[in-house]
Structure formats: C-alpha cells, structure tokens
Design a binder for these strands. Structure first.
Length: 275
DNA sequence: ATGTCCGTTTCCAACGGA
C-alpha cells in the first residue's frame, strides 16, 4: 500500500499534476493540503475518472484539505476533536476580534482508507512570533497531540497516519541556514516542542526514520530562487502509530516534483506500507 | 528586484497569504 501527502497549493491549478502523480507513483491514498477551494468547486471528476474517491473540506480560498483514495474512504471527519478555531481579524486593527467566534478552519480531514486511519493536516503557519496566528499554531498542535493520544489509548493497535504540512522545521539541518530564521517562525523552541508532542503521544515520524540525511527538503519558497539554490525546508512529515510504523518499509520524497513550470512549492512524501 | 505564485475582488491591478 502506498500513501502520499502533498501540499498542492491549489488543487484547481494542479489537478493534472495530481492525477499524473497518482498514476505514475501507483498511489492508493493521497492526502492533499492547501486545496484553496470551496467544496462545491473541488475538481473531483478527474480523480473519479482515474479510479479514486475524494473527501474534501474547504470553506474559502484559504486552506482546504482532502483525501483521495482508491481503497475506500470511510468515517470521514472534517476536523479533529478539540481542534481550535481562529478568531476573525478586525479589519481596522489587524488584531483578533474577540467579540467574534473563532472560525474552525479547513485544516484537518480524517478518513479510513484500506484499514489505515489517514489524517491530512495543514498546521497553521504562525506568520510572526508575536502574531496571534503563532499562538493559534501552538494551540492547534497541542490539541492535536491531546486528541491523537486518545486515539492510541482507545486502540493501541490502530494503524494511524498523521500526514501533511506541519510548518515546523524540527532540526537546524532541516533548513539551509538556521541564521535566516532567527526571529522568525518555524524553528522556535515552542514550535519544535509542539511538534515533538506527537512523538511523546506515541507516534513515530517516518520520514526522519527512513530519510535521515541532513538538508533533505520538502519545500522551497517560490521567492528568491530558493529551489535553484537548493535553499529549502523540511516541513512536511508523516507521523505513524506503532502498528503503522511497524508496517512501513520506506519513505520517498519526490524532489523532482518541484521542477518545471506550474510546480507547487511543496513536494509529495510517500509511505510504502506492507499489506 | 521580496529574482514567486495563488485566488479574490472594491474586478484586469492590487492585495492577502504563504
């Protein structure tokens, strides 16, 4: 079984690349992030024609996560229990308007595909360390850790994959120059601690296990010739429950998918799983 | 040159988000 995760950065602008990826890599499941489309405008037909079913949640032009599967999609959840919302920004101030209820964003979707509980996750970016979005990011990861811990407590033998764009670089060697990120998000100790919380909850991050080489990236910014200079970041990860980790035989990062016109700024991460 | 890209709108140029 092959399960991939990819921040596609607009499913409509890259639908052909997505279908090509499914066919070429013989994928059973593809978890997508940043589909940037409302449910009613999601291009499901090309996936269906290729033999896949789709579960998607998208509320606006921002965020949006999907699971594409040819091995079934059951028990779809469009958020995890306790998933925090984000307060609506007040237009005049650019600050959070606490008088408005927080908005539950389309950043998590779960479904059972071929016996594996797959979660496609788009962790909040954080923007700036002193921005409310940063606190939201930490809260979001803490809530995910809490809930993911209950899934394992309820069923220690469950096969669970928590895949997606985590927007955290856990190691200094996950970026080209940690000095560039001083005062910025993605490398701060609180973000790294929040990311490590999933390991504390009993999950194993599989890309690190199978691809330990330093400076192995999954994302290169469109700006400043980051890809030609190979100035990237490893921020897309796959946490697995013990049963799934034991069944996983390999991880592949498709660096070539960043090449050419019309590439996403992220590349797919693929898990090979026994049976 | 913030060496870019996406989707949206106060709509074809400017802006937010990343």
């Amino acid at each position: 079984m092959r399960i991939a995760s990819w921040n596609i950065n607009s499913v409509r602008s890259r639908i052909d690349r997505a279908v090509d990826l499914l066919v070429r890599e013989d994928l059973d499941v593809l978890a997508l992030q940043e589909t940037k489309v409302k449910d009613e405008a999601f291009p499901a037909e090309p996936f269906r024609e290729a033999g896949y079913e789709v579960a998607h949640t998208g509320l606006s032009q921002w965020n949006g996560v999907a699971i594409v599967s040819r091995v079934g999609i059951e028990h779809v959840e469009t958020a995890f229990a306790g998933q925090p919302g984000y307060g609506a920004p007040a237009p005049a101030e650019g600050e959070l308007d606490l008088s408005e209820p927080a908005v539950l964003e389309a950043r998590a979707i779960g479904a059972t595909c071929g016996g594996v509980r797959v979660w496609s996750l788009y962790v909040p970016n954080g923007r700036e360390v002193d921005h409310p979005h940063y606190a939201y990011k930490l809260d979001w990861l803490a809530a995910l850790r809490e809930t993911a811990g209950t899934w394992l407590a309820d069923d220690p033998d469950a096969k669970i994959a928590l895949v997606g764009d985590w927007n955290v670089a856990p190691l200094d060697t996950d970026v080209w120059d940690p000095g560039f990120f001083v005062g910025k998000t993605h490398l701060t100790p609180p973000e790294r601690a929040a990311f490590a919380g999933l390991a504390d909850a009993g999950y194993t991050e599989l890309s690190r296990k199978f691809l330990p080489a330093e400076h192995t990236y999954t994302y290169w910014d469109y700006q400043r010739l980051r890809f030609p200079r190979n100035e990237g970041m490893r921020i897309d990860f796959a946490y697995a429950s013990p049963a799934l980790a034991a069944a996983t035989t390999g991880v592949t990062i498709l660096r070539n998918e960043r090449k050419g016109k019309g590439a996403s700024d992220h590349v797919p991460v693929i898990l090979d799983i026994d049976a």
